[in-house]
C-alpha cells in the first residue's frame, strides 16, 4: 500500500495549459503517473500532448471527473483563482486535491477550509511540493507523482516522509535513497499558515499504513502543528519517528520565505518544537544532513 495515492490513482491537472502546470504534467507523465485529464476553463475539447500521451482537456473539473474517473487533482492555478479551483475539486467529489500554488491570500484559504467542512475531499497544501508514492521501475518510475517533486530521487520502500518544506523533503528523500532505503509515500503539506492537511493527519495515516515502517517528520518555525503531532505520537505512536525542525536561527517576527514560517508573540519557536519532539521520543536530527541516519539508527 502507501498512503493517499497509489500508482493506480487517476490524476487530473487544474491549470494544465499554463507553463508551470504543463511542465509538471509532462514530468508526471514521464514518471509513469496516470494523468488522465486536464482542466483549463475555455480550453475544453483540446488535448495536452506529450511524448505520445494525449490527455483530454476539459472546461470544468466536473466534466473531467465524469468522463475520465479521475479521483485526485493537482492545482497549478494562479493565486487569485486558486481558492475557486480547490472548491471546484471539492464540489466534484474528488478524494484528494493537492494545491501547489504559492501565494494564496489567507482569507481565501480560511473560506476554503470552512467551505470544505463535511466534504469527503482531502486537501494537501497549498504552497506545497505535493505527494510522491514511488513506483517499482528504474529511478522509482511507475509511481504516482502529484506536484513538483523530482520523481527520480525516490525509491520504493517503507519510510514515510512528511514536511512543510519542498527542498528539505527532497533532501531527506535523497539521503534515504542513496543509503538504499526506499519510501512508502512522501507528503509535502505546505508552508502556509492555513492548510488542508496537518502533520498530525499524515502521521496518523503513516501509523495506520502497514507498508510504512518508520517516519521522518520535518517541521519549521510557526504555528503548533508539530507540537500537536508530537503529543499524539507520545500517546499513540507505534513506529519510530525521526524529526528535524528548521528555523533555530530565524529572527522573531520575520516571515522566513514561507508565509507560515514566523515566530510571533514568542509562539512557534524551533526550541519549543524540538522539546515537544524529545518528549514524544522522536529522534532529533541535529542538522538536516542527519535526517536519514537518525531514523535508520532507530529502526
Amino acid at each position: 500500500m502507501a498512503i493517499l495515492v497509489t500508482p493506480q490513482t487517476k490524476l487530473l491537472v487544474q491549470g494544465i495549459t499554463g507553463s508551470f502546470g504543463a511542465r509538471h504534467a509532462q514530468l508526471s507523465l514521464d514518471y509513469g503517473t496516470r494523468v488522465v485529464a486536464g482542466v483549463t476553463p475555455g480550453k475544453g475539447g483540446q488535448f495536452f500532448e506529450h511524448n505520445g500521451h494525449r490527455v483530454p482537456v476539459f472546461d470544468t473539473v466536473s466534466d473531467a471527473v465524469k468522463q475520465t474517473g479521475a479521483t485526485a487533482s493537482a492545482v497549478f492555478v494562479p493565486p487569485p483563482f486558486a481558492a475557486d479551483a480547490i472548491l471546484e475539486g471539492v464540489d466534484s467529489g474528488l478524494d484528494l486535491v493537492v494545491a501547489i500554488t504559492e501565494g494564496i491570500p489567507v482569507r481565501d484559504m480560511i473560506t476554503v477550509k470552512r467551505g470544505m467542512a463535511g466534504s469527503k475531499t482531502r486537501l494537501i497544501g497549498p504552497n506545497c511540493p505535493g505527494i510522491v508514492t514511488p513506483g517499482e521501475g528504474k529511478d522509482s518510475h511507475g509511481g504516482c507523482r502529484i506536484g513538483i517533486a523530482p520523481g527520480y530521487i525516490h525509491k520504493k520502500g517503507h519510510i514515510g516522509v512528511v514536511s512543510r518544506s519542498g527542498t528539505l523533503t527532497y533532501e531527506a528523500v535523497y539521503q534515504l535513497t542513496v543509503r538504499g532505503v526506499g519510501q512508502s509515500t512522501c507528503v509535502g503539506i505546505g508552508g502556509d499558515p492555513v492548510n488542508g492537511t496537518s502533520h498530525l493527519d499524515v502521521i496518523q495515516m503513516f501509523m495506520a499504513d502497514p507498508d510504512t515502517h518508520g517516519i521522518i517528520m520535518i517541521g519549521e518555525i510557526g504555528g503548533s502543528g508539530e507540537e500537536e503531532a508530537a503529543e499524539w505520537i507520545r500517546l499513540n505512536g507505534t513506529k519510530p519517528v525521526a524529526g528535524f525542525i528548521a528555523g533555530s536561527t530565524a529572527p522573531p517576527g520575520r516571515r522566513m520565505g514561507h508565509a507560515g514560517a514566523i515566530v510571533s508573540g514568542g509562539k512557534g519557536t524551533a526550541a519549543g518544537k524540538i522539546d515537544a519532539f524529545c518528549a514524544a521520543g522522536i529522534g532529533i536530527a541535529a542538522t538536516p544532513s542527519d535526517m536519514a541516519d537518525t531514523l535508520l539508527k532507530m529502526l
Binding site: 527542498t167 518555525i221 528555523g247 514560517a261
Partner: peptide, 14 residues
C-alpha cells in the same frame, strides 16, 4: 527553497 534556506542558516550556526 525556504525550508532549506532556514536550515542552512541553522547548520552554519551548528
Amino acid at each position: 527553497g525556504a525550508g532549506l534556506a532556514m536550515s542552512t542558516m541553522d547548520i552554519i550556526q551548528h
